[in-house]
Design a protein around this nucleic acid. Structure first.
Lengths: 206, 206
DNA sequence: GTCGTTGAGTAACACCGTTACGTTAGCGCT
DNA sequence: AGCGCTAACGTAACGGTGTTACTCAACGAC
C-alpha cells in the first residue's frame, strides 16, 4: 500500500521528514491547484508515511498549509527585489514591483488564494510569521515607494504609507479578482496590468 | 433529537422547505461568520429535517452556499442604488457607490469572503447566475461611471470600462485585504475609505 | 378505495482531520 | 556488551463531513 519506500530518519535527522512533507505538500498544491486536494492523508501517502506522522512536524493542517505558502511568498519577495534592482527610475521601480507582484499572484493562483483569501485561526507565533510573511513583500514595496518619495516623485499631499496602501489595495484587487472570477470578460492581461499600473501610478506619482 | 417540529409540506409546496433551508443557512452563516460551521448537517438540524432532504432542493453544498451569498449580494445592489440615488453630483455618486460597497463587504465579511475568495466548481447554470450576481453590482457601477462620463467628468484618455475596472479592483482590494488581514495595522476605517476613494477618484475623474 | 407521485427519512459509503497509544530503532551510558 | 531512554514512526479509532441508494409515508386524482 505504501507507494514510496522510506527508510526511517536517523536519530538527529527528524527534521528531514519535515522538509519532505513540505515538498510533497507544495508539489501537490502546485500540481492540483486545489487546496482540498492537499489533505493530510494525501501528503502522507505521497511522502510514504502514515497520516499521524505529519503531526510530529506540524501542529495541524493549517500550520502545514501556512508553511507551504509562507515559503512560496518568500520567493515572491526575492522575485520582487530582482525585478526592482533592474530599474533605475524610482517610480518605474515601483511599477515594476507592482507588475511582478501581479504576475506572481496569477502564476500561483491557489497559493495566493490560500494566503489572502483563506481564513486562518492563527496562533500567536503564526501571527508573527504571517505579519512577517506578507510584510516581507509589503516592506519591500514601502521601501521602494520611499525611494521614489526621496527623489521627490510623490505627489504633494500623499505620504509614503498612504501610497503604499493604495498600491497594495489596487494591485491585490486586480490579482484576487482575476483569480476569483476567471469567467469575467477581463481585458488582455498585459494591457490590464499596463492600464492599472498607469492609473494608480498617475494618481500617486509625478 | 429533532430540535424543531416540522410538519411535512403539502403537495405542491415542496419549495417551502427550500426557502427554510436558505434562511437557516444564511442565519447560520451570519451568526457564526464561519463557512465551515454551515454544514449540510447543521443546516438540516436547524430546519428540523434530515441531511439528505437538503439534496431534494439543492444539488450540492456549493449550490446552497452560492444561493445564500447570491441573495445577500442582491441586497448589495439594492443598497448601492439607494446610496446612489442620494447623490446629485455624478462623481460623488461613484464615490458613494464605492463607500457603500466597502461598508457592505466589511459588514458581511464571511459572505464576501465566500463570494470573492472561495473557489467554485461552477456548473454552467451557476456560471450564468454568478456572472449575473456580481454583475448586478458591477453593472450598477458601470452605469454610474457612464453617467459621470456623460457629464464630461472622466479624465481624457480614460474610458468607462477602464475606469470601472480600476474602481472595482481598488475597492475590492481594500475590502478583501482588510478582511483577510485583520491583524495588519490598518488606518482608521473612515479615514482609509476617504483616502482610497479620493486617490482613485483623482486618478479617474476631474 | 386504490395507486402513483411527491416529500422526506434510514442507512451507509468514502473521506476528512485528529488523537491515544503501541512499536521500533539507535544513541549514550555503565 | 548490554541496558535503557527516547526520538521516529505506525496502528487503530473517533467524530465529523458531503453524498447517495434505497425506503417509507402521506396526499391527491381516479
Amino acid at each position: 500500500m505504501r507507494p514510496v519506500a522510506r527508510t526511517r530518519s536517523p536519530r538527529g535527522q527528524g527534521e528531514a521528514l519535515r522538509a519532505e512533507i513540505l515538498d510533497a505538500a507544495e508539489a501537490l498544491l502546485v500540481e492540483t491547484q486545489s487546496e482540498e486536494a492537499v489533505s493530510i492523508r494525501a501528503v502522507a501517502h505521497r511522502v510514504g508515511v502514515t497520516p499521524p506522522s505529519i503531526y510530529r512536524h506540524f501542529e495541524d493542517k493549517a500550520s502545514l498549509m501556512f508553511a507551504v505558502c509562507h515559503r512560496q511568498f518568500e520567493r515572491l519577495d526575492v522575485q520582487l527585489r530582482t525585478h526592482l534592482a533592474a530599474e533605475r527610475d524610482p517610480v518605474e521601480a515601483v511599477m515594476a514591483c507592482g507588475r511582478a507582484y501581479i504576475r506572481f499572484g496569477l502564476e500561483h493562483p491557489e497559493t495566493y488564494r490560500i494566503m489572502f483569501m483563506g481564513h486562518w485561526e492563527l496562533t500567536p507565533e503564526q501571527y508573527r510569521d504571517e505579519l512577517h510573511s506578507h510584510s516581507g513583500a509589503f516592506v519591500t514595496l514601502v521601501e521602494t515607494v520611499r525611494a521614489a518619495a526621496d527623489a521627490g516623485r510623490l505627489r504633494p499631499g500623499v505620504d509614503v504609507m498612504t501610497a503604499s496602501l493604495s498600491l497594495w489595495a489596487h494591485v491585490h484587487g486586480l490579482v484576487s479578482l482575476r483569480i476569483a472570477k476567471p469567467s469575467f470578460p477581463w481585458p488582455d492581461l498585459d494591457e490590464h496590468i499596463d492600464l492599472e499600473t498607469r492609473t494608480i501610478g498617475a494618481a500617486l506619482f509625478t
